[in-house]
């Protein structure tokens, strides 16, 4: 790619921001009390879910209302292996624990392969509807298949090994896994494959004229996104000590959509910034009032009406405007096909 150098230059503020964000995340467990460490873990896990959703929405241009199904599949796969591997007294060794985490992504990826096979035949509202229908179908299967999934009760008692029962240690484990996952995602979105995704988002017909196998590429991306959602799900079970069918429902998918749009779908780290805003706000607001839906609803309303690109979209626009003034539009244009 010839344009790599100016792009990298234009992206420098983004990189600096990501490093600052990581540094802040590293410092969270140093805060007094366990509250913010627990909130931080939730931010990371749900942020990973939102990041995986944005592979479909921000990069491929399709909105999925069933994405949480893969989050739930990963969570259940981990929870079931976890339950099978733990000893009768309820404790589990570290290798067995890590093994049960590993099983989440592949199971979710297989689910995404089956669902995606059908979904990628459609676009726009029909893609959204079909993903919603599959998500709800999986939800009701998990909900009603009592003998296999324990149905409504969910699976309880997912107590991680003693070392990871400390919120700080579990937080750093989650942070390490999420950072590696995001680096892999960044690689994917900046690869030729990632640029094919942007092409599919902007104009599928033209992409097909260029000889791109549209459905195959969409399916590959769907499976990748599903696997990352499954990884987030795998981390969720031992974090909350239980899994329940609600993890697969469309309301859970909605949370990923909210976070992505709050943070900004057009910026790579937008969804995780959205997760920081959403989850922290939720933690604080719930301390004072039960009317959390009213609060978040109003915030979303204001964001849709007044901050269409999300928080980071707004920041990016400011930065580009400044760069544009400095270099008479050249820098801004080079950066415009970035993200």
């Amino acid at each position: 790619m010839k344009s790599a150098a100016p792009q990298r230059a234009a992206n420098a503020p983004g990189r600096r921001f990501a490093v600052v964000l990581l540094a802040l995340f590293l410092l969270v467990p140093l805060l007094p009390g366990e509250f913010w460490t627990v909130v931080g873990t939730e931010i990371l896990i749900l942020g990973l879910l939102a990041m995986s959703f944005n592979l479909l929405y921000g990069y491929m241009g399709q909105i999925s209302f069933g994405h949480a199904a893969f989050f739930g599949l990963g969570a259940y796969a981990t929870a079931m292996l976890f339950t099978a591997l733990k000893s009768p007294d309820g404790s589990i060794g570290v290798p067995e624990f890590l093994l049960s985490l590993l099983v989440g992504p592949p199971v979710a990826a297989v689910g995404a392969l089956i669902v995606g096979f059908f979904c990628v035949r459609l676009t726009g509202i029909y893609f959204a509807m079909l993903s919603l229908a599959f998500g709800e179908l999986l939800f009701y299967i998990v909900f009603s298949w009592y003998s296999f999934t324990k149905g409504d009760d969910g699976i309880q008692g997912l107590l991680p090994p003693h070392y990871f029962q400390d919120p700080g240690n579990y937080y750093y484990l989650t942070l390490a896994i999420v950072v590696v996952a995001l680096l892999v995602m960044w690689r994917i979105t900046e690869s030729p494959f990632g640029y094919i995704m942007r092409t599919l988002r902007d104009n599928q017909r033209r992409a097909a004229f260029l000889g791109i196998n549209v459905r195959l590429h969409m399916l590959a991306n769907f499976v990748i996104a599903g696997a990352f959602a499954g990884l987030a799900g795998a981390l969720w079970g031992p974090f909350s000590r239980s899994v329940s069918p609600g993890l697969l429902g469309w309301q859970e998918s909605g949370i990923a959509v909210f976070m992505t749009l709050i943070g900004g779908a057009g910026v790579f780290i937008g969804p995780i910034v959205g997760s920081v805003i959403y989850t922290m706000l939720q933690a604080v607001v719930k301390m004072y009032t039960v009317y959390w839906p009213l609060t978040i609803g109003t915030i979303i309303l204001l964001i849709v009406l007044f901050v269409p690109g999300g928080v980071l979209g707004l920041v990016e626009k400011q930065i580009k405007a400044r760069q544009g003034r400095l270099s008479d539009g050249g820098g801004a244009r080079a950066g415009s096909d970035e993200e």
Binding site: I63, V257, L261, L294, I296, G297, I300, L301
Partner: peptide, 13 residues
């Protein structure tokens, strides 16, 4: 998605 989000905000409110 933004239209969906606006009406979904109304669901919550």
């Amino acid at each position: 998605p933004e239209q969906l989000l606006l009406t979904f905000a109304l669901v919550l409110i």
